[in-house]
Simulated scan of single mutants.
Amino acid sequence: MRVLAAMSGGVDSAVAAARMVDAGHDVTGVHLALSSNPQSFRSGARGCCTLEDSRDARRAADVMGIPFYIWDLAERFRADVVEDFVAEYAAGRTPNPCLRCNEKIKFSAVLERALALGFDAVCTGHYARILDGPQGRELHRAVDPEKDQSYVLGVLTSEQLAHAIFPLGDTVKTDIRDEAERRGLAVARKPDSHDICFIADGDTAGFLRDQLGEAPGEVVDTSGEVIGEHDGTFGFTIGQRKGLRIGRPAPDGKPRYVLDISPVDRRVTVGSREELAVGEVVGSAPRWCGPAPVGVVECAAQFRAHGEPVPARAELVDDVLTVWFDVAQEGVAPGQAIVLYDGDRVIGSATIDRAHSPMIMNSSRAI
């Protein structure tokens, strides 16, 4: 089988490619240049896509003895991931750029090009498993729960899963580093990248301020009383507690949290932790890793990459997904992805448009 191995320059993708070589496949390595002006070196463990990363990927490919290429996808990445990220925050939503990158870049642009060039599959270093099920290939959680990345892969369709390979899904991370050392790969102890890859210094608010400019507004409580000011709604997300810049404490002395973000009138509404409770979400743009669910289905729902799955019920009607939580949840924000599971199997995902809580619904308000 002809396999295109996406090599980021890190240890995971290098070992994934090496395993494909060991399995006897015809492997070609490719590094995705996603920045039009890459830095020479990483800043600690943050960021990726630097010149150093591309060189690390090339050196790993040389050790394996496989062909290696660099594909320039910087323009596509900026349009589909970076600009989408900025636009979502400008609209008061909380996006996950890793999901968007998997959906639009790694398993759309890259996979489409790979298939057009005659490759059979794309291999990556993601921690997830693809298993054969009664209705085709299924996406499952990785064996290592600490590294599981099935959440950010919940945007993949069954057609894309048919041409995807995740060789690391049955291995824990410490074993991967040991294996890389045995293979003579220089990236064996290279730090993992963290946070958002195109914000190397980790200052998301600063990045958004540079992109959108300051837009001062008011911080108000649920009665509408102004209790603080801010430089831009993009600096907030639902459930946030720190950095609210509130001039005085709540009457009961308890912490306050962001309940609502309104970029139109530049208002951020804060309230008690109890007011964060969400019992129902409505999502759009659903994507299914297999057959779409029919009727109301019992499932587990996850709305953060490293969050805990919670018992839920879900129903799809006319491409609109409604999910009800068995126990009210906190910090659910529009723009987040909600990923549904049946045990370890990923059913699919949708983008949260609205999140309702009993307290807010009783006053005819929705987050």
Rank of each mutant, 00 (worst) to 15 (best):
L111C: 08
L316E: 04
S357Q: 04
D72G: 09
E330F: 04
V81E: 02
A180S: 10
A16V: 06
F68P: 02
W288S: 13
F77L: 05
Q336D: 00
D260G: 10
D210N: 01
R59G: 00
N96G: 07
L212W: 07
K147C: 06
F166T: 08
F236E: 04
L131Y: 05
S108N: 15
L156I: 01
E88N: 13
G279Q: 05
D344S: 14
T124G: 05
G47V: 04
P358E: 01
T28W: 07
Q135K: 13
A186M: 10
S8L: 10
I360L: 14
P134L: 12
G290I: 03
A305F: 10
A337D: 06
T171G: 07
G307H: 07
Q39S: 13
E75D: 12
R182L: 04
V110M: 12
P291C: 06
I165M: 00
A301N: 06
D170F: 09
R19E: 06
A5C: 00
Q240G: 11
G232C: 10
P167S: 02
E275D: 09
R42N: 08
A79N: 12
V270Q: 15
L139S: 11
G125A: 14
S8A: 11
E225C: 07
A277V: 00
L212T: 08
S150K: 14
L208Q: 04
G243A: 00
G290K: 14
R19I: 02
G24L: 09
G184Q: 07
R59D: 13
R248K: 08
A87Q: 10
I261D: 07
A6N: 08
F107N: 13
V219D: 03
V296C: 02
L168T: 13
D342S: 15
S150H: 13
